[in-house]
Design a binder for these strands. Structure first.
Lengths: 211, 211
DNA sequence: GTATGTGAAATCATTCACAGCT
DNA sequence: AGCTGTGAATGATTTCACATAC
């Protein structure tokens, strides 16, 4: 009711904004200074109408009859998504997936910094992963404080994930990306995104079976 | 128009069916033989009404006033999703992510078998990954034929992904799971799913910034 | 003339609520 | 009495189409 109430973008829009950002970067690195909804939509792999609708949530940043200034639009989306600050990421689980993620380029660009990696296994604690060394799961609280962690990535077996979620919640980390193959219940106020690799394969199997 | 036309499940339904399958397995391993939409929905983390609606696409497999037989329902979803056959998976890219995926449990259960892993780098070709050894990108066609690959997983840099898609299409592999941070255009008839790790982090950043 | 920004229409997905069967 | 299966209601998302601004 209040005019002051937060204007929240639809989730689908947020997901696409990240794609526009990537597309804008690609255009910029090709030396383009201006673009249009048609060009940008093609680059991002979406339809131009929805791109304009998405951008309209952010206000009017284009010029009718002309288009958009690449740098300006890119900057604006960046700010809207909160990518103009530092995000300090903790990876939980130093198995193959955890180690792969800690070095993954997308995880180390645009304000995201992997600051620590933890594991329960004494065999892994103390080993090196990139320029980090694996710390003990039991030091979770200390590590979160020391590194001022604000995003956690769960690369642990399903059984371990739920306990970690609660513990992270208590420690004030309320953005979590989980690779655990389990639905998880989250404390109030926590943001959870799940990536479920085996589900993706199963969906592909279904699609392949379709006539 | 025709009554013979394939009845296609909504994409969102397919995604949830994989979760029900996992939930049913969990119940079965706890010794439960029967269940209800309420119990199953709780276990899968969804609302009971949509669970029943999803299942209604498969026909009537429950008993009113009673519920579902765990084993029977599980079997039926399995068949619907095409998980009762063998899926032979090829991993493209033997970097950290490719190696992690090749050993990932979800990738090696329920009919999915990782049969080969390829890379362009001469440093990696010939090295071992689990019980496979890395073969050369240039042997793609031969490997696809030899191993009768029907699903490919792209764990390669964005620039390499598009060419691979076309080449896989020509070779008759038309189910692809891509981790490349790029929108890809697919040949007619190909099924592509994308997992975009940096997008997930960016969405979390936005959610964390919200009041 | 050209491309944006946006109501209105169309499509897709979820939730409600209850009739129907056991 | 209890739980499924499903139309009808609601809500979300996408597409259309055009008035508006340059």
């Amino acid at each position: 009711m209040s005019e002051l109430e937060a204007k929240v973008l639809p989730e689908a829009t947020v997901a696409r904004l990240t794609q526009y950002l990537r597309a804008l970067n690609a255009l910029e690195s090709r030396g383009m200074e201006r673009t249009s909804s048609g060009v940008l939509a093609k680059e991002a792999g979406v339809n131009p109408a929805i791109l304009r609708k998405d951008l309209s949530w952010l206000g009017s940043y284009g010029t009718r009859g002309v288009g958009y200034v690449v740098r300006e639009l890119s900057e604006h989306i960046n700010n809207t998504l909160g990518l103009n600050r530092d995000w300090r990421v903790l990876i939980l689980g130093a198995g193959n997936l955890g180690r792969a993620l800690s070095g993954y380029a997308g995880f180390t660009t645009r304000g995201f910094k992997v600051r620590a990696i933890l594991d329960v296994s004494p065999d892994l604690v103390g080993t090196d992963v990139g320029n980090l060394h694996v710390e003990s799961r039991s030091d979770l609280a200390e590590v979160v404080r020391r590194e001022e962690i604000n995003i956690a990535v769960l690369a642990v077996p399903g059984d371990a994930a739920q306990d970690l979620i609660y513990e992270l919640g208590e420690l004030g980390v309320n953005s979590v990306l989980s690779f655990a193959p389990k639905p998880l219940v989250v404390p109030r106020g926590m943001n959870l995104r799940r990536v479920d690799l085996s589900t993706e394969l199963q969906i592909l199997a279904y699609l392949a079976v379709q006539p």
